[in-house]
Amino acid sequence: MEGLDVSKLPLDLLLNILNIILLFLITRFLVYKPVKKFMQERKDRIEKEKADAEQQLREANDLKEEYSSLLADADEKARQTVLDGENEAKKRSAEIIGKANDEAERIRKDAEEKAEKEKGEALESMKGEVASLAVSISEKILSREITDKDNERIVESFLKDGDNA
């Protein structure tokens, strides 16, 4: 066959195999390894970011739980305080009203007593004045001297009438 040089066959095979190995080494070091390293780094970075994000999410959830429980406690306490305040206020108001009622009662009694006393005093003074007035009038009317005994008798009967009236 033309073109087939059997004596050069091993040389040809060797040259071709060397060519292939040369191409393999060149593409391995120039293209394959850098791209593979880059892709591996990117995958690692994304995995780490995902793990970080998950951990942060978990922490945030824990924090949320804690805060919500605190909030529930505070809520409870606030309600309790309000209830307490209301009760206190009610008690206070009842107390004040009671005190005020007592005070009013006392004032009324005082006023009544005073009025009674004043009425008695007024009656007494009025009695004296009316007695002297009656004596002077009777003196004038009778134009005579009234003795003390007559005086007392007239005043007593007048007062009895005055008492009855």
């Binding site: 073109g3 040809d12 071709n16």
Partner: peptide, 30 residues
């Protein structure tokens, strides 16, 4: 057509044309 490719002479060695073509391909890819 030739069944096996013809040989050229290069630096005193006679290599076949396919080897030269392969060298060119490797050079371009490099």
């Amino acid at each position: 057509f030739d069944l096996f490719s013809n040989r050229v002479s290069l630096f005193g060695f006679s290599v076949s044309q396919t080897t030269v073509t392969t060298w060119c391909i490797v050079a371009v890819i490099t």
